[in-house]
Structure formats: C-alpha cells, structure tokens
C-alpha cells in the first residue's frame, strides 16, 4: 500500500490550480486542517483489500435513445444569462496572447 499522502500547502496549491480556485493565504491553514481531517477519514478505505476489480460505471445499462435532432432552445434566452455577449456569441477576456 502506498504511503498516505501529505496534505500540505504544496498539494493544496496544485489542487486549487486544477480546480480553478484561489485560496487566499489567510485561509489556507483552515482549509488544510479541514482537508487533513477528511482525507484521514477517506483513508479508512485503504485498509480494504480483495475488492472487486471493476466497478460498474454509473451509467452502465442506460439505454440510449435515438440520436434525433430536437428544436434547440431560443438563442436569445440561452445568451440572456451571460454577463457579456456580442453578435450571438459569448464574450470572454483574452484566451491567448496575440
């Protein structure tokens, strides 16, 4: 069994980047303490052996309906919840540098 992971600031920083979250420095200690307690509870599963090799996918056995085009939602209603739109499209800040 691999060693239990170190739930430290480096791991928190990596997870926050993956999750697109910013945890301010003044909150990191509190978040880390909560994470350490919960991960310690998760570790109860690490003592289990002889588990089934595979788990059924949550969608196993779900029947697929015919792939038929249905009328789409009205474009103006879909765009109405966006903070910024133009010419029927969502507008976002720059994605790549010119």
């Amino acid at each position: 069994m691999p060693p239990a992971p170190a739930v430290d600031r480096a791991l928190l920083q990596r997870l926050a980047e993956l999750a697109r979250l910013h945890v301010p420095a003044e909150r990191q200690g509190e978040v880390l303490r909560s994470m350490q307690r919960v991960v310690a509870a998760f570790d109860a599963l690490r003592e289990l052996h002889d588990l089934p090799l595979d788990a059924a996918a949550p969608t196993a056995g779900v029947p697929l309906r015919p792939d038929t085009a249905e009328p789409p939602l009205p474009l103006d209603e879909v765009l109405a919840n966006a903070r910024q739109t133009a010419a029927g499209m969502f507008v976002v800040p720059r994605v790549v540098d010119a």
Binding site: V7, R14, L15, A16
Partner: peptide, 23 residues
C-alpha cells in the same frame, strides 16, 4: 471541490475515487 479534485487527480485516483467505486 478541492477534495473531489484530490480524489480524482493523478497519483490519488486509483487509491481514492477508484477504490470508492469498488467499495
């Protein structure tokens, strides 16, 4: 979200999320 990302991330997925689905 942070803990869920932990359970799914490389290096931990098999020992955590993967194991939970089997349990």
């Amino acid at each position: 979200i942070l803990l869920g990302t932990f359970g799914l991330s490389i290096g931990y997925q098999q020992e955590y999320y993967g194991k939970a689905t089997r349990v």
